[in-house]
């Protein structure tokens, strides 16, 4: 199963990688972030498609194609709407599923120790 991506999963990972990065990324850098088993042409094609529909922006870099970054305005607007949506206690509890809920009642140190073990 490893390396297999569901339909549309690659586009989400590309957007996620660009949003996580501090600076614009070239296709090669995106590919490096996502893992080795992907061809750069596949990443490139995904980036171009995302640029065509206006999800990401790009500018040319001398002699080396383009670098890409996510549309920050949309992300900032989304943030303010998300803040409003999650405001208050009742909505938060009713919020569908979050990847992790709050750590209330958990020893953060125990989790950190677990993380160290998982990395080794």
């Amino acid at each position: 199963m490893r390396g297999h991506r569901a339909h549309g999963a690659l586009a989400a990972e590309v957007v996620a990688a660009l949003a996580a990065a501090e600076a614009p990324l070239s296709p090669a850098e995106v590919q490096a972030a996502l893992g080795s088993e992907l061809g750069e042409d596949k990443v490139q094609a995904t980036l171009v498609r995302l640029w065509e529909i206006g999800v990401v922006a790009r500018r040319p870099v001398e002699g080396r194609g383009h670098v890409y970054w996510p549309m920050r305005d949309a992300a900032a607007d989304a943030a303010s709407r998300m803040r409003t949506a999650l405001a208050g206690r009742r909505p938060k509890r009713a919020a569908l599923r979050q990847f992790v809920t709050s750590l209330r009642g958990v020893d953060a140190d125990r989790l950190r120790a677990l993380l160290v073990r998982l990395r080794s």
């Binding site: 549309g8 999963a9 586009a11 989400a12 590309v14 957007v15 996620a16 949003a19 498609r49 995302l50 529909i53 206006g54 999800v55 996510p70 920050r72 949309a74 992300a75 900032a76 607007d77 989304a78 943030a79 709407r81 998300m82 803040r83 409003t84 949506a85 909505p91 009713a94 919020a95 569908l96």
Partner: peptide, 22 residues
């Protein structure tokens, strides 16, 4: 109401993903 507000946060064009700068 929650579902409606979360759907209104952003449209996942092309990637199935909406990113919020937060």
């Amino acid at each position: 109401g929650m579902r409606r507000r979360l759907r209104g946060v952003g449209r996942p064009r092309g990637s199935g993903l909406v990113v919020a700068e937060w």
